[in-house]
Design a protein around this nucleic acid. Structure first.
Lengths: 204, 204, 204, 204
DNA sequence: GATGAATGAGTCTTCATTCAT
DNA sequence: AATGAATGAAGACTCATTCAT
């Protein structure tokens, strides 16, 4: 066979990752056998192993790729000149997450949970995740500083702290959506809006 | 050998769960072998299997026990007549979670992540979790209704929605503490308090 | 099952080594599959792996055990007060090697060749072999010094050098017996005796 | 593409054998993968397979070629009209072996050991080896008969037996050089010369 | 002639679970 | 009740060889 072009290799690689995501969502990371992914990808064992060193490598790639993809998807929203107020942005982020996660036949959100668990035993993955979340927090903190200029947020609280609260809400949304159920982006936004005046209440 | 008293059996069972937690925190659910737990518990294989039907059963018990323990720990706070305002309660819950999670040599928080991942492939476990979170949301919703009476929260938003937002914050805290780092209960409370005046923006 | 006695464990271990020798002699080290040894030993995979960490470990043990066994077998001959002259001792050694190597259904001599080859890629094994041969050379050198006292050997040549020549003859015998054929202990002895007078010839 | 000249083909073939020797010396016969040799030769898989039917064929060729090469190298010495006495000839042979074995970056001596081991499971190879050693023994026996005429060797011992002893010394030298260390051609010659006067003992 | 991607049978090794003692 | 040796199915990964381009 002729030498594969870089493009062909990338397409093939993505085909394997897709197969991985489908299997992982179905059975989790460890109950998924390499043979499952190989069959799902419609390739041979050797072919898959020529793209990924081993199962851990494939897992890491599947998790990392989904994170960078999501970051790409969120960037325009977070860097837009037209920044909506916090609860609205939050709803927008969560809608984007849903939108990004829904794939042909599987839901990437559920895979995030697997990633957090996996990061407990794969130090390399943990570092990748920390970098991803650090970047996300930094973007959110930038939004916070812009809200401060618009008087939408209390200036005395550190940007980072508010960003952390927002991140918590996003993460908490994902877990509820995947495990608990009974939530959607609008519910989260309304809940946050409802919470918000508690301060007004305390002040008043 | 003599029959063990019920008390002895419970102590032995807890000894195994403890060993399980330690191992799970160290290596995750699936990389932990029964032999690891058996060795960590200082028992024989047969002994462990007389307390738990199989590995899944032990995992389920370890996860469930930690959830019910936490619920027990949180109850007085949530049912207290002296209910603090939302951000303060949230901080209190998170402090209690930290307090409950810190054990001799391991951190139960990290095990929550394993549980969410596991619930994706263990339907029985998922149901247990859903029940646990449903009860937690109900307790939080009850708090919300009391806050409404005190004018601490916008009355037009459903209790459940606000409870969901609070749950998201708790869950998001746990994930950040376990995976991302850079958070503590006070940061979360301040972040939430900072978010609060966004309402002012909407009003103004 | 009750705890196995040390004696039982050793017997079982030897049973596995025996199976290994048989397989190795038949097919060489690497064409022998663990399953072959497992079947030949009449045990289960797990049982074999509870005695040897992995295939390399088993190979190393099979090779090492055969060397130490041979050393044990040769010791009385080399340390006897009644030391025969060189060619006779050499014949004795080679007879002992044959005698030791012949087992129920296989020939350890052929396994020595496998060991030399294996030592090229297993540094640990190489060190074991070097120690074994160093000890053997030392014993032979001791014989040489005794022959010198009896005037059976030229005193001007280092003990070690003569021991090296003897070792070469033993090794060369084993290779010829295993690969080339057409040799036996008596032929070797006579050949050496024939060679011996060349010096006399040169002197005369 | 154009048809390669016979000369080009031979050069290419030798290039592959050279790559094979380098790899075999490094990792042994079986731990060396075809891909290693292919990479070391700087060719494609298909190219290598157009010169050798399969791995066994390549191994056989690598081993055989080294043997015939050595035979070529030794012939003039063994057939010279000016035949030195046994110990001197032996030293000369061993020096020639060293000289022949030392290559750019590897040592063919070590590969001899691999060949002996391999001959235990490759009957075809074994026959090639037996032919090689038979021819070598015949050449040595011819030397012996000439030494007899010169009175350098005991005439009552069969030529073949003495040749066998010499072959043993050569082989034993190679193994010691490759595995044990602490030997060189001069040590072997002196050791053999030292052994020589044992005859005096027997006579006396 | 040459390439190198793809194949997939083959092997080692692990580990949850059992059950004879 | 307790033990812990034994089981053996299952799963990750390799690598000699081929053949479409």
């Amino acid at each position: 066979m002729a030498k594969l072009s870089e493009e062909q290799r990338l397409a093939r690689r993505h085909q394997i990752l897709n197969a991985g995501w489908r299997c992982f969502e179905r059975n989790g990371l460890h109950a998924t056998r390499m043979d499952d992914i190989i069959a799902e990808a419609g390739l041979s064992a050797g072919a898959v192993y020529s793209y990924f060193k081993n199962k851990d490598d494939l897992i890491r790639a599947a998790l990392t790729t989904s994170m960078t993809g999501l970051a790409e998807r969120l960037r325009p929203m977070l860097e837009s000149d037209n920044l909506p107020p916090p609860a609205i942005l939050l709803e927008g982020i969560v809608v984007a997450v849903e939108d990004f996660a829904k794939r042909d036949g599987f839901d990437l959100k559920r895979i995030a949970l697997l990633g957090w668990a996996e990061s407990q035993r794969d130090e390399q993955l943990k570092e990748i995740m920390q970098a991803f979340y650090a970047a996300f927090v930094a973007q959110l903190a930038d939004c916070v500083s812009r809200w401060k200029k618009a008087g939408l947020v209390i200036p005395s609280v550190t940007d980072d702290h508010i960003a952390r609260a927002l991140l918590a809400l996003v993460i908490g949304y994902v877990v509820q959506a995947a495990v608990v159920g009974g939530i959607n982006p609008k519910i989260l936004r309304q809940g946050v809006e409802g919470l918000v005046t508690s301060r007004a209440g305390r002040d008043g």
